[in-house]
């Protein structure tokens, strides 16, 4: 059970940590979903051709970084509306994976090959879990102890004060986007490599759940880690209920959205009540 919850939550933790960097830098990053998706696809693509999950994982991070760069460049340089360009990045991820999948694999559907290398595990645990834990710790360190972390938070809290102090918000926000691309890409790899296959649109809202987890986790890496565990736990138990009540799979697929939405409503309700 614990193992299953951890496996479910690892991709979301990684993406949420990535989103935390952009969030702290004052950028609402609704492109996490797309960044994860290109990561998931690149991981399978590169692993398929090299036979190495390590190279696949690195490729996933690189794919996330590349899309984040396009997204960031357009948003920051052209001063475009970040919500709309974020939607663009998500659709771009769907489109480009569909295109490459048809061109390279000749299918728009599931990509899976029988001799796909299995994912490294330490004991019972997925290697990505350790990556997520390590990333959480490193994130705490970067945010609080480094020059970049301080400038990132300062930019997010008040870009004009930071500017007066000589902090270049463009470069800070761009770097935060690239980090979110790398971590979300890894999150995508965690998703597809564990399955050993790529399924179209396999992120299925996980990027959005990660986004909500950032708020529910009070924008703190540890808080986010715990929130993701709770969300995954809730999903796990509702899935487990399937056995008892034979809930159809389509309804199960709606659960993550409903659980996250409920968490968000409770959170905003508490916030509003505290304000008063």
């Amino acid at each position: 059970m614990g193992n299953a919850i951890l496996d479910m939550t690892t991709p979301i933790i990684l993406a949420a940590l990535g989103g935390l960097f952009t969030e702290l830098g004052g950028v609402l990053n609704i492109a996490l979903e797309g960044l994860m998706l290109v990561g998931a696809f690149a991981a399978i693509l590169i692993t398929e051709f090299t036979g190495s999950t390590l190279l696949g994982t690195m490729g996933a991070a690189l794919a996330g970084i590349s899309l984040a760069y396009i997204f960031g460049f357009i948003t920051l340089r052209f001063r475009a509306n970040i919500f709309i360009t974020g939607l663009g990045a998500n659709l771009f991820a769907l489109g480009i994976t569909n295109y490459l999948s048809s061109i390279i694999f000749g299918t728009k559907g599931v990509i899976h090959s029988p001799e796909f290398p299995s994912l490294l595990r330490i004991g019972n645990y997925n290697l990505f879990l350790f990556a997520a834990i390590l990333s959480t710790i490193i994130t705490v360190f970067i945010i609080n102890k480094t020059v970049f972390g301080l400038r990132l938070r300062a930019t997010g809290y008040n870009a004009s004060v930071s500017l007066v102090r000589g902090v270049d918000s463009y470069s800070i926000q761009m770097k935060s986007l690239l980090i979110s691309g790398a971590l979300s890409g890894l999150g995508g790899a965690a998703l597809s490599l564990r399955l050993g296959a790529y399924v179209p649109n396999m992120t299925a809202g996980r990027g959005w759940i990660a986004l909500v987890a950032i708020y529910l986790g009070r924008k703190h890496p540890i808080g986010i880690f715990i929130t993701c565990l709770i969300l995954a736990g809730a999903e796990y138990f509702s899935n487990a209920a399937q056995g008892m009540f034979t809930i159809p799979s389509d309804i199960l697929l709606a659960f993550p959205y409903l659980i996250t939405l409920t968490g968000m409503i409770i959170f905003s309700f508490i916030n509003r009540t505290l304000e008063k």
Binding site: F71, T85, G88, L91, F92
Partner: peptide
Amino acid sequence: NLIKAVIFF
């Protein structure tokens, strides 16, 4: 999706 992506970008 790619056409939409370009429009949104």
